[in-house]
Nucleic acid binder design. Structure first.
Length: 818
RNA sequence: GCCGAAGUGGCGGAACUGGCAGACGCACUGGACUCAAAAUCCAGCGGGGGUCACCCCCCGUGGGGGUUCGACUCCCCCCUUCGGCACCA
C-alpha cells in the first residue's frame, strides 16, 4: 500500500470545508425543482455499523447525483434517540440514558462526517429532546381528541427481557423483534392508536406507491389482511341475544353443524350455565385462555374444545346446533365466534373429526367430480335448500341479500391488522400526556403545559415502570378539577417518534407547531427513501398511518409521504449477519483509517447491486483502493500537461479519438445506471474507462494535454457521487475555483457515441460462425453480400439452401439454411 | 401449508425492450521491474477436445420440456436457497 494518495489529508480538508461553510444546507429558495433524499434515521447504539454505511453511501450518492442534476436537494439526518438499549446500558453501567445517548450521537455524528456524507447538519433532529418529543405528545392529544388514541384492557404481548409490552408488529413468530425472547401474554390496560380505522385507506393507497418495491406492498397487504365476508346472527336457544359470527364462506352455511366461541368470548359464561360440570368446564376454558399465544396460535397446535351444553339455531336451516368453545378460535379476529363447517374448512374438519361432530357436504366441484373432504375451494352448492345448484359466487350474493333482508346481519369486512399498542412500561421514551383523575377520568394535559418532561432519574431499576415510582412525576393536580391526581406513567413506543421525524426535518426549530405547513409543502413528498426491508410492516406502515392522521388534522394535504422507496440488502460477513455475538463485526472506523472513506463508499456500492445482500470482503476493498490510486497516479503524472489555461479539446490521433469515444460512452452508461439505481455497474463503467485510459497511456505516442484534461474533468464529475473527497481534490487541482459538488452532471455528446466501425456477428442457424468489422452505416444488403461471400460462412452453407435471413441492424445477421 | 424473490466461472457479479454469455472487481497463473521482496505495470484466466503457435470444433446460465431464425431473458413442470405470513374463519 505504499505510494498511495494521501487520503487522510484530502478527506480531512474537504470535510472541514463542507462543514465549515455549511455547504449542504438546504433552503426553500431558488428556482430549481426540489428533491428530498432521505435515509432511515439511525438508533444511536454507539457506533455506525456497515449497514448504516451502506445506507448512507447509497443515499449520499443519490443526493449528490441529484444536486448535480440541478435539483435543490434536502438531505437531512437525525437520531432515533429514545429506546431500551439506552435504559439497559444505564441500568448496567450506572450512567444516565441521556448521557449515554448523547455521547453515542456525538460519536456517530463524527463518523458520518468522516464518511463525507453531504448532510444538512442544521436540520439534525434528536428525538429524545423535549423540543422534539413535545410534538409526539401534541400528536397524541390531537388523536385523543378524535378518539384515535384510547385506552383499553386486553391481552398484550409482554417481553420479559425488555420488561414491557410490544405491538403486534414488533412480535415475530412469537418472539421479540429486538432480543428474540419468547413473548408472553398478559392482560393489561394500555394505550392504543386506532390504526384499524385507516385499514382500508392503508390498503387502497398502496396503489399510489408505484415506486415502492412490490415486496413491501405485498407484505403490507398481507399484514392488513382484508377479508370480505358477512356477520351473521345465530339465535341462541332460550336467550334473546343472538351470537354474531363472522364468515367469508356464507355459501357453506347449510353445512354449519356447530358454532364455536373463542375462550375469551363474552357469552362463554352464559353458554356454560347449562353445563352439567360447570366448574371443571370453566377450568378447562381457563386453560385455553392461559395458553401462550405462540403455542395456541401455531398451526400445529392441538385443537382443544368442549361442548357448552347450550344450543343455537342455524338461521338458514333452522336446525338446532351445539355451541362449543375451542382454543383455535381467536377473540381478536372477526367477532370471536365462528360457524363451523367441517366439510369445507380444514380446521373445522379436524375438530369435528376429533370430537365426533357431524360433517355435511354442501359444496361440490363445479365439474361434478368427487372431491375429498374437506373441500375448501369454491364450487357448486348441494344440500343447500333453495341455493342448491348455484355456484358459490352467485350464492354468496343471494345469501348476503337474504341475511340483510331478514335482519340477520350484513356483509362485512374483517382485517387482520389490529390497533397499534403504544404503551411501554419503561423510562426512556415520550411520556404519555394524560392525567388520571378519580373524578374526571383520563384528562389530557393541556397544550400550553407541554412538554410533559421526562424527569431526570438518578437510578433506574429493571422491573415495574420507573416513572410509577417517581412521586414528583406521578403526583399532580388534575388539569380539569385541580384535585390530586396521577400522571400516566407509561411512555410511548419509539415507533411514534419515527413516524413523523422526516416532517420535522423541514422545520426543525419550530416551537409553535410540529412544523410549518408551507415548508413541508415545499419539500414533500420524500422523493427517495432508503432503508432496510426489516421495517416493511413496522415503521413503514406506522409512518403511512401518521400521514393520514395528519391529513385529517388538516396539517398536510396528501395521502402518502414517500413517493419512492428503496430497500437495500444487508451487509454480511462470510454469509452471516454481522453480530457482536458472532465476532464477525467489521468496524467502519478501522476501514476508514486504513483506506479512507472514499474507498469504503466505493466498495460498498460496487460490490453488489444495492437491493441484494453484500458479503464483506477485504480484498475487494483493496481493489477499490487500487482503482483510486491508479487514477491518482495517472492524474499526477499528466498534471503538468493540462495545467495550461483551458483550451478546446483537440483530437490529434486515432488513439485520441478512441479515448474520447470511450469517454462519451462511459458518460452515457454511468448516467443511465444512476437513473436506474445501479450504482454497481456505474462504478464498473468508470473502472472500465480507466482501463481504456491505461491503454491510451501505453499506446499513444504523443499524449494530448487538452484531451487528458477533459478526461479527468469528466471522470472527476461522474465519480464524485461515490468518492466525493477524492474528486473535489482532483477538481481543485484541475484549476477549478468552485466545488465539484455543485457542478452540472455531464451529458454524453451523441456525436462521439457512434462507433465508425462496428462488428457484425454472422450466425448460421443461430450459431455464431463469423464476425466482420464493417462501417457503422452499413445496410442489410451490403452485409448480406459480405457474409455470403465469406469462405468460412460458405463452408457452413455447403449443400444447403438459404431459407431465410434475419438481420438486426448494427448487430447481427442470422442465415437460416437447410 | 400460503405468498414472494432468487439460482450464471474458484468468488462477488454483468448482459437496458429475446440478438456475440461471463463486462467490472477479487482470487489465481505467467512475465517485466528488483540483489530480493513488496508495490506497480503487462498478459492469461468457464469446461472439454482437435496436426491446442495462429486457428478451429463441441458443451455450458439449477434440472426437464416448449415457443422462436435465435432463449440467462418468454411459457409449462420440477428441484434448491432465501425472505414474509402462518388455526385470521
Amino acid at each position: 500500500m505504499r505510494d498511495s494518495y494521501d487520503f487522510k489529508q484530502i478527506e480531512r480538508k474537504w470535510q472541514e470545508r463542507w462543514l465549515g461553510d455549511n455547504e449542504f444546507a438546504a433552503s426553500e429558495t431558488g428556482g430549481k425543482p426540489k428533491y428530498y433524499a432521505l435515509e432511515m434515521l439511525p438508533y444511536p447504539s454507539g457506533k455506525l455499523h456497515m449497514g448504516h454505511v451502506r445506507n448512507y453511501s447509497l443515499g449520499d450518492a443519490v443526493a449528490r447525483y441529484k444536486r448535480m442534476r440541478g435539483f435543490n436537494v434536502i438531505h437531512p439526518i437525525g437520531w432515533d434517540a429514545f429506546g431500551l438499549p439506552a435504559e439497559n446500558a444505564a441500568i448496567k453501567h450506572g450512567t444516565h440514558p441521556e448521557k449515554w445517548t448523547l455521547d453515542n450521537i456525538a460519536n456517530m455524528k463524527a463518523q458520518c462526517i468522516r464518511l463525507g456524507i453531504s448532510y444538512d447538519w442544521n436540520r439534525e433532529t434528536t428525538t429524545c429532546l423535549p423540543e422534539y418529543y413535545r410534538w409526539n405528545q401534541w400528536f397524541f392529544l390531537r388523536m385523543f381528541e378524535r378518539g384515535l388514541a384510547y385506552r383499553k384492557k386486553g391481552i398484550v404481548n409482554w417481553c420479559n427481557v425488555c420488561q414491557t409490552v410490544l405491538a403486534n408488529e414488533q412480535v415475530e413468530n412469537g418472539r421479540c423483534w429486538r432480543d428474540e425472547s419468547q413473548v408472553e401474554n398478559r392482560e393489561l390496560e394500555q394505550w392504543y392508536f386506532r390504526i384499524t380505522d385507516y385499514a382500508e385507506q392503508l390498503l387502497d393507497d398502496l396503489g399510489q406507491l408505484k415506486s415502492w418495491p412490490e415486496k413491501v406492498q405485498i407484505m403490507q397487504r398481507n399484514w392488513i389482511g382484508r377479508s370480505e365476508g358477512a356477520r351473521v346472527h345465530f339465535p341462541v336457544e332460550g336467550r334473546a341475544e343472538p351470537i354474531e359470527i363472522f364468515t367469508t364462506r356464507l355459501d357453506t352455511v347449510y353445512g354449519a353443524t356447530f358454532l364455536v366461541l373463542a375462550p375469551e368470548h363474552s357469552r362463554v359464561m352464559e353458554a356454560l350455565s347449562s353445563h352439567p360440570a360447570k366448574e371443571s368446564a370453566l377450568e378447562e376454558v381457563g386453560r385455553y385462555r392461559a395458553q401462550q399465544k405462540m403455542v395456541r396460535e401455531g398451526a400445529e397446535a392441538d385443537k382443544l374444545g368442549l361442548f357448552t351444553g347450550s344450543y343455537c339455531f342455524n338461521p338458514f336451516t333452522g336446525e338446532r346446533i351445539p355451541i362449543w368453545i375451542a382454543n383455535f378460535v381467536l377473540m381478536e379476529y372477526g367477532t370471536g365466534a365462528i360457524m363451523a363447517v367441517p366439510a369445507h374448512d380444514e380446521r373445522d374438519y379436524e375438530f369435528a373429526g376429533k370430537y365426533g361432530l357431524e360433517i355435511r357436504r354442501v359444496i361440490e366441484p363445479v365439474d361434478g367430480s368427487d372431491a375429498a373432504l374437506p373441500f375448501c375451494q369454491y364450487g357448486r352448492l348441494v344440500n343447500s335448500g333453495p341455493y342448491s345448484g348455484m355456484e358459490s359466487a352467485d350464492a354468496l350474493q343471494k345469501m348476503y341479500s337474504f341475511v340483510k333482508e331478514k335482519n340477520l346481519g350484513e356483509a362485512s369486512v374483517s382485517y387482520r391488522l389490529k390497533d397499534w399498542g403504544i404503551s411501554r412500561q419503561r423510562y426512556w421514551g415520550t411520556p404519555i400526556p394524560i392525567v388520571d383523575c378519580l373524578d374526571c377520568g383520563a384528562v389530557p394535559v393541556p397544550d400550553d403545559q407541554l412538554p410533559v418532561v421526562l424527569p431526570r432519574l438518578e437510578s433506574i431499576k429493571l422491573g415495574g415502570s420507573p416513572l410509577a415510582t417517581t412521586p414528583e412525576f406521578v403526583d399532580v393536580p388534575c388539569p380539569r378539577c385541580r384535585r390530586p391526581a396521577r400522571r400516566e406513567t407509561d411512555t410511548m413506543d419509539t415507533f411514534v417518534d419515527s413516524s413523523w421525524y422526516f416532517y420535522r426535518y423541514c422545520d426543525p426549530a419550530n416551537d409553535r407547531m410540529p412544523f410549518d405547513a408551507e415548508k413541508v409543502r415545499y419539500w414533500f413528498p420524500v422523493d427517495q427513501y432508503i432503508g432496510g426491508v426489516e421495517h416493511a410492516i413496522l415503521h413503514l406502515i406506522y409512518m403511512r398511518f401518521f400521514t393520514k392522521v395528519m391529513r385529517d388534522l388538516g396539517l398536510v394535504s396528501w395521502d402518502e409521504p414517500v413517493s419512492s422507496l428503496f430497500t437495500q440488502g444487508m451487509v454480511t460477513k462470510d454469509g452471516a449477519k454481522m453480530a457482536k455475538s458472532k465476532g464477525n463485526i467489521v468496524d467502519p472506523d478501522q476501514l476508514v483509517d486504513l483506506f479512507g472513506a472514499d474507498t469504503i463508499r466505493l466498495f460498498i456500492l460496487f460490490a453488489a447491486p444495492p437491493e441484494k445482500d453484500l458479503d464483506w470482503n477485504q480484498s475487494g476493498v483493496e481493489g477499490c483502493f487500487r482503482f483510486l490510486n491508479r487514477i491518482w497516479r495517472l492524474f499526477s503524472r499528466y498534471h503538468p500537461l493540462f495545467l495550461r489555461p483551458s483550451e478546446a479539446v483537440e483530437v490529434r490521433s486515432e488513439e485520441d479519438r478512441k479515448l474520447l469515444r470511450k469517454l462519451h460512452q462511459t458518460l452515457r452508461r454511468v448516467g443511465n445506471d444512476m437513473a436506474r439505481f445501479h450504482m454497481n455497474t456505474a462504478i464498473a463503467a468508470i473502472m472500465e474507462f480507466l482501463n481504456s485510459l491505461a491503454e491510451y497511456d501505453d499506446r499513444a505516442t504523443e499524449k494530448n494535454g487538452s484531451l487528458l484534461r477533459e478526461v479527468f474533468n469528466q471522470t472527476a464529475l461522474i465519480l464524485s457521487p461515490f468518492a466525493p473527497h477524492f474528486c473535489e481534490e482532483m477538481w481543485e487541482r484541475l484549476g477549478h475555483p468552485d466545488r465539484i459538488s455543485f457542478q452540472t452532471w455531464p451529458e454524453a455528446d451523441p456525436a462521439w457515441l457512434e462507433e465508425e466501425e462496428i462488428e457484425i456477428v454472422v450466425q448460421v442457424n443461430g450459431r455464431v460462425r463469423g464476425r466482420f468489422l464493417v462501417p457503422a452505416g452499413i445496410d442489410e444488403e451490403r452485409c448480406r453480400q459480405l457474409a455470403l461471400q465469406d469462405q468460412r460462412i460458405q463452408s457452413y452453407l455447403e449443400g444447403k439452401t438459404v431459407r431465410r435471413l434475419v438481420y438486426v441492424p448494427a448487430r447481427l445477421l442470422n442465415i437460416v439454411a437447410a
